[in-house]
């Protein structure tokens, strides 16, 4: 019985030391980790809406009755891009479901409701197939598209004005990105009331 207590005691001491070490590491790295996440988001917003000089998070209370609609479930963040005191556009972050989980997409939309740029962020898609959604070639196709019935995905051929050519072998990922962009376009349309 005494042995038993001794062993438990030793294990407990080891665990306490371990917890202490981790607590210190956490204290040192915590702010840095948060900072990294914020910076990544900032950079993504600048990339998709380069006209804007600063971004303000859109007050969620103001648009809560719009956001509560079921088709906006995948929207995670809405920012307003401003330049010289004027609103020049919006960036919307959506997380539609792709092939290997959710795909994060940040979409920049100007006041005319046209896509200025998109950035495919964190995702668990297949390397070499779905991961290609983050290439300029695929992302670039969305520039200039607007909410007029939405963007349509085609599997082959030459895309028309409102069409996007799917990534070869990754239809599910392509569909997810198109869904994310359409949702963002519709949302901005509704916010600006065009």
């Amino acid at each position: 019985m005494r042995d038993y207590l001794k062993l438990t005691g030793i294990l407990l001491i080891v665990c306490i030391v371990a917890a202490g070490v981790l607590g210190v590491t956490n204290a040192v790295t915590y702010e840095k980790i948060i900072e990294q996440a914020i910076r990544e988001n900032d950079e993504a917003r600048k990339e998709v809406l380069s006209e804007a000089e600063e971004f303000n998070k859109v007050d969620e209370n103001g648009i809560s009755d719009i956001l509560s609609k079921s088709n906006y479930e995948i929207v995670t963040e809405v920012y307003e891009g401003r330049s010289q005191g004027q609103t020049v556009g919006y960036t919307v972050k959506t997380s539609p479901k792709g092939y290997g989980g959710t795909v994060e997409i940040v979409i920049g939309i100007d006041m005319e409701g046209k896509v200025k740029g998109i950035k495919v962020g964190e995702n668990s898609e297949t390397p070499g197939l779905g991961k290609n959604a983050a290439t300029p070639k695929f992302q670039g196709q969305f520039v200039g598209k607007d909410w007029d019935g939405g963007v349509v995905l085609i599997k082959n051929g030459v895309p028309k004005d409102n069409e996007i050519l799917s990534i070869a072998g990754a239809t599910i990922t392509s569909t997810a990105v198109v869904e994310g962009v359409n949702t963002a376009l519709e949302l901005v349309e509704e916010i600006t009331g065009n």
Partner: peptide, 19 residues
Amino acid sequence: VVIATFVSAVEMLIKAFSP
């Protein structure tokens, strides 16, 4: 426990310095 401690520490460092 020793190994898990170092792994967690490395994980935090990677998150902080190389996202």
